[in-house]
């Protein structure tokens, strides 16, 4: 009888632990489609990762506009702003802007979105290879004000996105850019 009670207690504890972790996992990700279309997709950092998200949105059949240099005035008319964060010195050079100008543009975009009740989704699909001082500056500028984060897992090896998200921002970590497209699609009504 005593052994049976012990077994049941252990099983109960294991079940409770499993449930607790499942709860954390569910709370960390986006629980369901919360965002509305149309979307404005833009780059923060002028890497070509934005182009990949554009292709993902196209394949997902989303109603979107892609403008890598969209300004704050472009936000009106859209229900969701998608910021693809990834710094590229080549990209910034190609766009003819510097880091400060790009960061200001990102802040202005987010400000306009928040004022207009537009959802903000921040994506990082460049992974480990894209991380570095340049990208991290843009991550810190954009991610804390996001309503949802989609981060390709190997870009979060130092848990920078996890720390930013804390308990307040839903975050999903797809394994590949292709999988990120699935999360993007699922986020929209």
């Amino acid at each position: 009888m005593k052994d049976r009670l012990l077994t049941l207690t252990v099983l109960g504890l294991v079940f409770a632990v499993v449930l607790a972790f499942a709860g954390v996992a569910a709370a960390a990700g986006l629980p369901g489609a919360q965002f509305e279309q149309p979307l404005l997709i833009t780059s923060v950092g002028q890497s070509a990762d934005g182009q990949m998200v554009r292709v993902l949105a196209q394949r997902a059949g989303l109603n979107f506009t892609y403008d890598s240099l969209a300004g704050a005035d472009a936000v009106s008319g859209y229900r969701t702003l998608v910021l693809v964060v990834g710094g590229s010195s080549k990209g910034l050079g190609a766009a003819g802007i510097n880091l400060d100008q790009e960061e200001q543009r990102a802040q202005a975009l987010i400000g306009a979105a928040k004022n207009g009740g537009v959802g903000v989704v921040v994506m990082h699909v460049g992974g480990e290879a894209r991380r570095g001082d340049l990208t991290d500056r843009f991550v810190r500028a954009a991610a804390p004000r996001a309503d949802y984060l989609i981060v390709v897992a190997d870009g979060n090896q130092d848990n920078i996105f996890g720390q930013i998200a804390g308990d307040s921002i839903p975050v999903d970590y797809p394994g590949t850019v292709g999988e990120a497209g699935g999360y993007l699609k699922a986020a929209f009504k």
Binding site: Q46, S47, A48, D49, Q51, M52, S88, K90, G91, G93, A94, G96, G126, G127, A129, R130
Partner: peptide, 11 residues
Amino acid sequence: KIGLEPSPKTL
């Protein structure tokens, strides 16, 4: 895995 980089117009 392959990274994408735009060709800078100024280079």
